[in-house]
Amino acid sequence: MADHIEQQLAPTPGERTAIFFKRTDVVRTSLLFIFWTAVFVVLGVVFYPKWMPLVMSTELKSAEAIMVWFTVISAPIAGLVLAITSNAFLNMHRGDTPPPDGPAVRTNGPVVAVWTITSLLFALVAIIWGLTEMNGQAVAAARDAKSAITVEVTGSQWLWTFNYPAQGIETHELNLPVGVPVVFDVKSADVNHSFWPVQLGVKVDANAQVTTVIHTTPTKIGAIDVKCAELCGLYHAYMETNGAVMSKDDFNAWVTAQGGHNA
């Protein structure tokens, strides 16, 4: 059927395109393409924001944006792959003997070229997007270094402790003032851990004898969960503690209550 049409190709490229898009399998594939693309767009746009915790920093915001937007950008590619696949599936041949042979297309230069270039562009988008975000975060960290408060984080099997050198307090809860940049200096008293204040969207491993550093600026008031994201033995699952981003006044009051002094 399809081959029959191919035999009487119309002379001009425009007419060939028109005929191509009138082929039933092409029409079906196009509809499936729209369907699958929409599915992926919805998956990305609706579900990720729904699942993710409260976004309390620009870092988490940018992680969420990557998850949502990369899904949207890849939706047409996924849509095309799934459209062709599901069209073939719907077109199946049942029975105990093989179907008749299909067209002997061994390759199609332009298709391979366009496909490769598209995936190259797609990879470039992902790379440039990532590098831009990383650069933005590095610039912000450098800019905010002076105004930042420092929290020294120590992971020990199976608890986190926090030292606020400027405030002179040590605690097992991570409280932070809103809008003030913070630098976490992270180390471990024993095996590897990974410091993960979930709602702040940053993470860095805690190692013995070396200090690793991450920066963020809490943008919203609310509770944060501090977890360990690196398997560290028996009670890794329970290596969690709570904390909060609070107004500056509340933070100062908390520091005072802990016996510290406000810088």
Binding site: H172, K227, E240
Partner: peptide
């Protein structure tokens, strides 16, 4: 003797 738990759950924190 150190008691802790999963503070993110709906339960109260105990430390």
């Amino acid at each position: 003797f150190t008691i802790h738990g999963l503070p993110t759950s709906t339960q109260d924190s105990l430390f």
